[in-house]
């Protein structure tokens, strides 16, 4: 098959994107819709710890939180997954045994992506062999900026193969791409190479996820779906720390891709502090009182 010329990816008008986002953020989500949305959001969170200071104990605490978000509120969902470095996958798998919470591991020389193909493949294999259900890889932004789109494509394809049954999330690190045109191009490359999810950010670079960048990626997913019939998931990550914003993301998904994508199989939030804000909102909806952080554990 002839290689795709990714420089021909659709063009994006940034001001137009912002106009569309303004329409979405003007949506008002009330009452039962809000409650449903908040529950959905909790269930879509990839509870994340990706720090140099991570330890087995820290990861275990996080896993506990993923399953027991706030036990005083009945019928809460779990988060979708916990997301850790490869060397903590074993710990997380053990801690989450018996739950539905998936273990996601970053890989491929996260977060810079600067390493050899061998190391990246090995990184992925170790994560998968240790039981990771999902792999969050980073693309080679340097190669991408140099215009070596085929290199980027083939690397993703190789990692996808190494993932086996694990689902592959491809982090574009949109904060380093610079324009929406390039975000769109990178999205197209990742999806063509077999990504199960495309993801905005590592969380290490600002700006991380934003609504506009997510809209560009969702529209890429839509076009890919129409062209191939294959659904691809979306994961904005970093910078999503409150419920209102989370609901705006969900409205954007609903209006761009529709109800099929509104499950944690196809949409995730990469976040560490979002869960508590959502929980506080749920508690407020239930009790009518505004909440204090003191009552919500910070694992």
């Amino acid at each position: 098959m002839a290689k795709q010329d990714y420089s021909l990816s659709p063009k994006i008008d940034q001001v137009g994107i912002l106009d569309r986002v303004a329409r979405i953020t003007a949506r008002s989500i009330k009452n039962e819709s809000k409650m449903q949305g908040l529950m959905m959001a909790l269930n879509m969170i990839d509870l994340t710890t990706l720090e140099g200071a991570d330890t087995d104990e820290k990861v275990k605490q996080l896993c506990y939180k993923a399953v027991h978000l706030h036990d005083s509120i009945p019928n809460l969902p779990t988060t979708a997954a916990v997301c850790v470095y490869p060397n903590f996958v074993k710990t997380a798998v053990k801690a989450l045994k018996g739950s539905n919470v998936k273990v996601a591991s970053v890989a491929t020389a996260f977060p810079s992506g600067h390493s050899s193909r061998e190391i990246k493949l090995m990184d992925t294999k170790i994560a998968v062999d240790n039981g990771a259900h999902e792999v969050d890889m980073v693309i080679s932004r340097g190669k991408f900026h140099s215009g070596e789109y085929n290199f980027v494509h083939d690397e993703i394809a190789a990692i996808k193969e190494a993932c086996g049954k694990a689902r592959l999330k491809v982090i574009l690190e949109t904060g380093e791409l610079g324009t929406f045109d390039k975000v769109r191009r990178a999205s197209d490359i990742a999806m063509d190479a077999g990504a199960d999810f495309i993801k905005t950010s590592t969380g290490k670079i600002k700006p991380a996820a934003t609504l506009p960048v997510t809209l560009v990626m969702l529209e890429a997913i839509k076009d890919h779906y129409y062209n191939t019939g294959r659904m691809v998931g979306m994961k904005p990550a970093g910078g999503i720390s409150n419920s209102k914003l989370a609901l705006q993301y969900l409205i954007m998904v609903k209006e761009t891709l529709g109800g099929q994508w509104l499950t944690n199989e196809w949409f995730r939030f990469g976040a560490s502090s979002l869960a508590n804000d959502v929980l506080m909102q749920i508690a407020k909806q239930n009790s009518g009182n505004y909440q204090s952080k003191d009552y919500f554990s910070i694992d």
Binding site: S28, I29, K30, I251, G258, L262
Partner: peptide, 19 residues
């Protein structure tokens, strides 16, 4: 020839009245 690809964009979630 192939199954028609469509999106369900009319999902009701989010549409509680906000007067």
């Amino acid at each position: 020839n192939k199954k028609e690809i469509t999106l369900d964009l009319s999902s009701d979630w989010g549409l509680a009245p906000a007067p």
